[in-house]
Simulated scan of single mutants.
Amino acid sequence: MDKLKLRASIRQRRASIPEDERYAASVQIREALLDQPWVQMAGLVACYWSTGAEPATHGLVFALWKHGATVMLPVLRDDLDLDWAVYDGPDTLAPGRFGIMEPVDVRRGVDAVRTAALVIVPALAADRSTGVRLGQGGGSYDRALARVGPNVPTVALLHDGELLDGVPAEPHDRPVRYAALPGGIVRLGEGRPAE
C-alpha cells in the first residue's frame, strides 16, 4: 500500500474511534511513558501539542512539565521545518499555523531539538522492524529527527493497530526507536517491550 492510501485509511479509522476510547488510550500511553526511567530522567523533552484524533499529548506535556522537565513544543515555520519554543504551562500557548497551539516563548531555532534528552513525535503508523514512521506528509518531523543524536530516545505515539509489519519508506524518512501504544512501549527494530 502506498503512503497516500495508508494515510487515508488510518485517518479514517482514527476518526471512527469514539472520543472516550481515544481519551482512555491517551491516558494509558501517558502513564506507560511516565513509568519509563529514561522518560523520568529526561531534563529537556521535545514533544508536540496533539490535534484531532491523534493520541492526546496535552496531559503528557503538562505532567512532564509538572515533574520538572523543560518541554519544548514545535513552531511550524513557513518552509515546514520546525522551530522550537518552551512550554511554560497551559496559559503560554496560542494558535499558530493551521490553528495548532504553539508556545509564545522565544523561538530557540531548528537546532534546539539537538539538545533534547527525549523526543516524542506524532505518527500515523510505525514499522515494527525498521522504526520508520508514517507522518502527515509534510516532512517536518523527518527533518527534526535528522538533527537528533543516535542515542536519544525517539518515540512515536500510536493508537492500537498502528504498529505495522511494513510502512512505505523513502530515503528522507527517519526512524524512531520506540512506539508508545495504549498497551505499553515497544522498542522498534526488535519487536520486544522496552526495558
Rank of each mutant, 00 (worst) to 15 (best):
M1E: 01
D2M: 04
K3R: 15
L4P: 00
L4G: 11
L6T: 00
R7Y: 11
R7K: 02
A8C: 03
A8D: 12
I10T: 05
I10L: 15
I10W: 05
R11W: 02
R11M: 12
R11T: 01
Q12V: 03
A15H: 06
A15V: 01
S16V: 01
I17G: 00
P18K: 09
P18M: 06
E19A: 15
R22V: 07
R22N: 01
Y23I: 03
A25S: 14
A25F: 02
S26A: 15
S26V: 04
S26Y: 04
S26Q: 09
S26M: 02
I29V: 15
R30I: 00
E31Q: 15
A32E: 00
W38D: 12
W38C: 13
W38Q: 13
V39W: 03
V39D: 08
M41R: 13
G43H: 11
G43R: 15
G43T: 06
V45F: 03
C47N: 12
E54Y: 06
E54D: 01
P55K: 02
T57L: 05
T57M: 05
G59F: 03
V61D: 04
A63C: 05
L64I: 12
K66T: 13
G68L: 12
G68Q: 04
A69F: 01
A69H: 15
V71E: 08
M72K: 06
P74F: 05
V75L: 15
R77D: 09
D79Q: 11
L80C: 12
W84V: 09
A85S: 13
V86Y: 01
D88S: 14
G89R: 04
D91W: 08
L93W: 06
P95N: 02
P95I: 01
P95V: 09
F98R: 06
F98I: 05
F98D: 03
G99L: 02
G99T: 04
I100S: 00
M101N: 08
E102D: 00
P103W: 13
V106P: 00
R107E: 07
R108H: 10
G109N: 10
G109Q: 10
V110R: 13
D111E: 12
V113Q: 02
V113E: 08
V113D: 05
T115F: 07
A116E: 08
L118V: 08
V119N: 11
I120Y: 00
V121E: 06
P122S: 06
L124W: 12
A125K: 05
A126W: 09
R128A: 14
T130M: 08
G131F: 07
G131H: 09
V132C: 06
V132S: 03
R133M: 10
R133K: 11
Q136P: 01
G137R: 09
G137Y: 06
S140R: 02
Y141C: 07
D142K: 09
R147E: 03
R147C: 02
G149M: 00
G149D: 08
P150W: 15
V152T: 15
T154V: 14
A156L: 09
A156K: 04
L157V: 10
D160S: 14
D160Y: 03
L163N: 10
L164Y: 11
G166P: 04
P168D: 12
P171Q: 02
D173V: 00
P175F: 07
P175A: 11
V176W: 03
R177N: 06
R177H: 13
R177I: 10
Y178D: 01
G184R: 03
R187C: 13
R187P: 07
G189Q: 04
G191Y: 07
R192W: 03
A194D: 14
E195K: 14
